[in-house]
Structure formats: C-alpha cells, structure tokens
Simulated assay, not measured.
Amino acid sequence: MDEAQVKGRLEVAREEHRDLDAAIDALASEALPDQLRVARLKKRKLRLRDEIAQLEGSLIPDIIA
C-alpha cells in the first residue's frame, strides 16, 4: 500500500474505533446490557487499536542511525 492508501485506511480505522467506543458506551448504559455483545465489540476495538498502531508505524520512515 502506498502512503495515501495507508492514510485513508488509518482514517477509516480511527473513525470505526470511535464508533465502537460510542456503541460500547450506549450498550453499557442499558439496564441489562448484553455482556456477550459488549465483549465482542471491545475485542473488535482492540483489534482496530492494533491495526491503527501498525498503520501509524508504517508511516514513520526507517531511520538508519
């Protein structure tokens, strides 16, 4: 992937991460939250966080010291 594609995917992943955060908060605020669904959303959010970190790392040029 070239830099523009990485930046585009990074923005999409960040937006999805924010959306998942809002969905988790909404589910958790219910009287009887669906714990299985909350756990699955949290797991997806963690995978996205890892993907975001990997994409950000790929944008940083390797520096030979």
Rank of each mutant, 00 (worst) to 15 (best):
M1V: 13
M1E: 13
M1G: 11
D2A: 03
D2N: 15
E3M: 10
E3I: 15
E3T: 13
A4N: 15
Q5M: 08
V6I: 15
V6A: 09
V6C: 06
V6N: 07
K7E: 13
K7A: 09
G8L: 01
R9Y: 05
L10P: 01
L10K: 11
E11S: 13
E11R: 12
E11G: 09
A13F: 10
A13L: 06
A13Y: 13
R14Q: 15
R14P: 05
E15Q: 07
E16C: 01
E16Q: 11
H17E: 14
H17C: 06
H17D: 11
D19G: 08
D19L: 10
D19H: 03
L20Q: 11
A22L: 13
A22Y: 00
A23M: 12
A23R: 10
A23S: 12
I24T: 03
D25A: 09
A26W: 02
L27N: 12
L27P: 10
S29C: 01
S29A: 14
S29E: 13
S29W: 07
E30M: 10
E30T: 01
A31G: 12
A31V: 11
A31H: 08
L32Y: 05
L32N: 14
L32K: 12
L32V: 04
L32Q: 10
P33G: 14
P33R: 10
D34P: 15
D34H: 13
D34M: 05
L36G: 12
L36V: 11
L36I: 09
L36M: 12
L36A: 13
L36P: 10
R37I: 01
R37F: 04
R37E: 14
R37T: 09
A39L: 06
A39Y: 01
A39R: 15
R40K: 02
R40G: 03
R40D: 08
L41T: 03
L41E: 07
L41A: 07
K42H: 00
K42N: 04
K43Q: 07
K43C: 04
K43Y: 05
K43F: 05
K45S: 11
K45G: 08
K45F: 00
L46W: 04
L46H: 06
L48D: 03
R49S: 04
R49F: 01
E51I: 00
E51F: 02
E51K: 02
I52H: 05
I52G: 00
I52P: 02
I52M: 04
A53M: 12
A53Y: 09
Q54C: 01
L55C: 05
L55H: 07
E56S: 03
S58P: 03
L59T: 06
L59Y: 11
P61G: 05
P61S: 07
P61R: 02
D62H: 14
D62R: 15
I63D: 05
A65S: 01
A65Y: 02
A65F: 05
